[in-house]
Amino acid sequence: MENLNPRIRTVWILVAVLIAAFLGTIFRAAPTDEYAEVPVGVIIFVVLLLLFGTYQLLRYRNWGFEVQDDAVYIEHGVLVHVKKVVPFVRIQHIDSRRGPVERASGLASLVIYTAGSRGADVRIPGLTPERADELREKLRELAIENEESIEDAV
């Protein structure tokens, strides 16, 4: 099972910090007990940070994927554990993408499209751009290898 690039963990934790800080600031004005030593906003910030931070750490830890012999296998999820199997035969096309955040952090993600309705697009985040491109090429080749059965795409 291949893990995501650790840098995505940093990105996710940063996101958690930002959200916690944002909500903390909103509650900054909340009335504070005179004798309390810490303002409510700070408490909220800390609690949320712990909560979101743990979530993001678990999220990172639970993310994994593997290019197996006939399919891409993906596992992820914190509250809901998800295991996906995307057979190569079913791959319609593959994108490697870099959004603004991803570009800033030097990362990329891979999106695999199938004709399915639910798991129609499967996204693997937190890849280095090289790895994303490499995976894209590899999956493309694997999909083409199954060319003979391409008429079975649906």
Partner: peptide
């Protein structure tokens, strides 16, 4: 098309999961 197995935090307490078999 693809197979998705998922189990929510509540399902896991009972060691249960849901398998969705996706078609086009």
């Amino acid at each position: 098309q693809n197979v998705i197995e998922s189990s929510t935090i509540l399902q896991r307490r009972w060691r249960l999961a849901t398998v969705t078999i996706d078609t086009a």
